[in-house]
């Protein structure tokens, strides 16, 4: 239990200087080979794991519904698929937004994610407020912060109208940055 204080034995007692150089060389070359072998295996692995960092998310326009199905002044929950759903993603690839029709021609699509920590905010129609269930963030109808911890307004998706249909452009979940 207390071997810890003992000095390690002299390396190769009685060895000639040539032998010592040779052993040094061998241990160095062995360590380098181990490093090389390890790198051959781990570099592709790291690349594989970190690939999502470097992938670009193409913004895809998703059709939400006919312009006529949204009333002016109302805010409605809409669903759409993310930009490149994997074949096995199923419902996990679904996304939602709060679509507000501000005028005959104009729409705003708010992200449902609270800018505090990303929880899904709920629209309270009669109070004209978005409320977050997690830590009590509140936003006005235009997405600006009304109360609570959120540091920024609700994020938005690009919206457009094409041939009578409202379309939302997908984008990554808004992450508040430092």
């Amino acid at each position: 239990m207390n071997e810890s204080n003992a000095d390690p034995p002299e390396p190769c007692p009685g060895a000639t200087p040539e032998e010592i150089t040779r052993r040094k060389f061998l241990s160095r070359i062995s360590l380098s080979l181990i490093g090389l072998g390890g790198a051959v295996v781990t570099v592709p692995l790291i690349g594989f794991i970190f690939a999502p960092l470097f992938r670009r998310d193409p913004g895809v326009w998703r059709t939400i519904g006919a312009v006529g199905s949204f009333k002016v002044g109302e805010t409605t929950a809409v669903e759409f698929l993310d930009s490149s759903p994997l074949p096995w993603a199923g419902i996990a690839a679904k996304n939602a937004a709060w679509l507000r029709r501000t005028s005959e021609k104009e729409f705003i699509a708010f992200a449902i994610n609270c800018s505090h920590l990303g929880c899904p905010v709920r629209w309270q129609q009669s109070a004209q407020l978005f409320m977050c269930p997690c830590h009590g963030g509140v936003y006005y109808a235009d997405g600006t912060v009304a109360a609570g911890p959120p540091p920024a307004p609700l994020g938005r998706y690009p919206v457009r109208v094409r041939e009578g249909e409202v379309q939302i452009q997908t984008k990554p979940t808004v992450i508040q940055r430092a």
Binding site: D57, S83, N113, P172, T173, Q176, A178
Partner: peptide, 26 residues
């Protein structure tokens, strides 16, 4: 993802790493 996203400089990367992309998905 939102919490690691707050880390300066590498936050955005860490958030992508956590989600496995831009959003929750497959």
């Amino acid at each position: 993802a939102e919490q690691v996203g707050r880390i300066p400089l590498i936050g955005g990367w860490l958030a992508r790493f956590t989600l496995g992309g831009g959003t929750v998905g497959g």
